[in-house]
């Protein structure tokens, strides 16, 4: 399972890549493999504010709908419309083209409290 080093991870299988005051959020390779064929994705609207751990987006596989939680608090500043048009990007490139939204960090320290790659790798057992 791919777990890139420079990302931070929530126990609920979202990643965040913070640069300056904003972070890009998506789901992990492990999460996409567990969800299987993703056929629908609904990124949050720009301007939506969320707290850490709140539902920010929904993705659906053929079998089930799954909530995606924001790993940090803040305001959504960009949403990835490409995953609405082609939800399979979440399966094929979860850490790249399959990103879900960008968030202006309410509290940059929240990022540091998330798991690093080693800790997340341990959580998913490898």
């Amino acid at each position: 399972m791919n777990v890139p080093e420079n990302f931070r991870y929530a126990t609920t299988h979202e990643w965040i890549l913070a640069e300056g005051g904003t972070g890009t959020v998506g789901i992990t390779d492990h999460a996409q493999a567990e969800l299987t064929d993703i056929v629908f994705a609904e990124p949050p609207p720009v301007g939506k504010t969320v707290k850490a751990g709140e539902v920010a987006a929904v993705v659906e596989s053929v079998k089930a709908a799954s909530d995606i939680y924001s790993p940090v608090g803040g305001e959504v500043v960009e949403r990835n419309a490409a995953i609405e048009a082609d939800p399979s990007l979440l399966n094929t490139d979860p850490f790249g083209a399959g990103w879900i939204f960008k968030i202006r960090l309410a509290n940059p320290a929240e990022v540091e409290s998330l798991k690093d790659a080693a800790a997340y790798r341990e959580q998913i057992g490898g």
């Binding site: 299987t36 064929d37 056929v39 053929v62 079998k63």
Partner: peptide
């Protein structure tokens, strides 16, 4: 088994 390679496939 609910799926092997994937439901769509």
């Amino acid at each position: 088994p609910v799926q092997y390679a994937g439901i769509m496939q």
